[in-house]
Design a binder for these strands. Structure first.
Lengths: 162, 162
DNA sequence: ATTAGTGCAAACATTTTGCACCTAT
DNA sequence: ATAGGTGCAAAATGTTTGCACTAAT
């Protein structure tokens, strides 16, 4: 993929994610990594997703495309994007990891419905501050945290409600 | 293992964990599960541990014993004890699970040192309550939660400090 | 031309399972 | 006697890696 092709992809891309795509390709260049078709296609797909996804579900998105992308490449791109801080990795207690893109998203925590798997985001500044305090009073400097609330959603319209 | 053998083990066991052992064997009986040598030995070891451990580290504890216990059995016992709510499973972001026994322990969250791997427990009732609120205002009923703070311990005596 | 990326299949690490044998009830 | 447990090795699962080939620089 050359500069023209990159420009072409950036042009066809939805307005809402053009900035994200640009950030990613700039990151690649800065790191001396190549701007490949696969990387652009996967990034485009990721930035278009508005849900948390897994390596598997992402791969699934390319199943019926003429542009097949291998599982190995998916994992390799995920790892670059996490490194680039464009993507955040989550562990919701299952055996596989979840991801979500974080460009332009502010920090938040998650509530996961044990019935339907729905993931809701929330953020409480008071909790954040109490965490800072807890870490400090135990002699730690925080580098990150993960707060997952597991529960049952009371939504009667929940699609997977048992 | 018969009743006598069980009684014998319970007798030789350290005072501090006799209650826990009793709870476990009662659970087994109630569920129609058998009280085996392996189950008693593994439970005894687990209740004696005062740190978070993994399946691997637990297996390691039996490496040089005349009573070898297979990996499969370790996993099977862990799963029974989690089911019995004697053991809690944790995901600290690694590829393997951590466990800790929770009989007589009150709920707490964790701070994990990225340098030395040390795990510190803490608990802040205010955070707990704010979580309840967050869940409720999003229409969820909490079934559990996991709060892990990742950080760097500032302890100059930290054994693994880089 | 050079360096890096891709796809495939094989390797990995952790956990689970099938099965023949063994033990608690 | 019988239902259930154990150990072993094989399978399963999610992820990573070696390598020959291909594409971006």
């Amino acid at each position: 993929m050359n500069k023209d092709r990159e420009a072409e992809i950036l042009k066809t891309v939805d307005d809402s994610i053009r900035m994200e795509m640009k950030t990613f390709s700039e990151y690649l260049q800065k790191k001396g990594l190549k701007i490949t078709n696969q990387r652009m296609l996967v990034a485009e797909r990721i930035f278009s997703l508005h849900n948390h996804f897994t390596a598997e579900s992402l791969l699934e998105e390319f199943k019926d495309q003429r542009d097949k992308i291998s599982k190995a490449t998916i994992y390799r791109i995920l790892s670059i994007m996490v490194e680039a801080k464009l993507l955040q990795e989550h562990n919701f207690g299952q055996d596989y990891k979840y991801y979500e893109h974080i460009i332009g998203h502010t920090h938040h925590d998650h509530i996961i419905c044990g019935d339907c798997g729905r993931i809701v985001e929330f953020m409480d500044e008071r909790i954040e501050q109490l965490q800072e305090q807890a870490a400090a009073s135990n002699g730690f400097k925080i580098t990150g945290h993960s707060l997952n609330i597991y529960g049952t959603c009371l939504d009667p319209n929940c699609p997977n409600k048992k």
